[in-house]
């Protein structure tokens, strides 16, 4: 299998092509540095993303309070995590850094508030 990626390791944005099969990555081409190679491999083997969204809050200044995952979560689980977060309503007061959902969907990442309510 083959996938074309744009590298985000630096602003250059190299166009990288990765060839891979079920056993793993076979080749990485188009990158101009080692960081590009590492980025391309992680994108195939275990792509992760930070998630930032908001959660409903009762009795706060605004109807929602912003939250984020305190570490990256698997890219494939982003929408499942969104569903879990959107099913939650918290009560004011909410403090910045407060854990809203611990270990969301077993990813090991906590969903934490990034502002006061």
């Amino acid at each position: 299998m083959k996938r074309d990626l744009t590298c985000v390791a630096c602003p250059l944005g190299c166009a990288i092509t990765v060839e891979y099969d079920e056993t793993g990555v076979l080749s990485v081409t188009g990158n101009t540095c080692k960081r590009g190679d590492a980025y391309a491999r992680s994108e195939i083997v275990n792509p992760t993303r930070s998630l930032a969204t908001s959660v409903k809050v009762n009795g706060g200044i605004y109807p929602v309070v912003p939250v984020k995952s305190n570490k990256p979560i698997p890219k494939s689980m982003i929408f499942d995590c969104m569903k879990a977060i959107n099913s939650v309503t918290v009560e004011a007061p909410v403090k910045l850094g407060q854990v809203i959902i611990p270990n969301i969907l077993g990813t090991g990442a906590d969903i934490v508030a990034t502002n006061h309510d």
Partner: peptide, 25 residues
């Protein structure tokens, strides 16, 4: 910053990836 809830703020200044409200705070 209060409405910029995505992360990526503060990498240069704090060496951390913060959300907008966190950076402002």
């Amino acid at each position: 910053l209060e409405q910029c809830i995505h992360t990526g703020f503060g990498l240069h200044y704090f060496g951390e990836e913060l959300s907008g409200p966190e950076y402002a705070d």
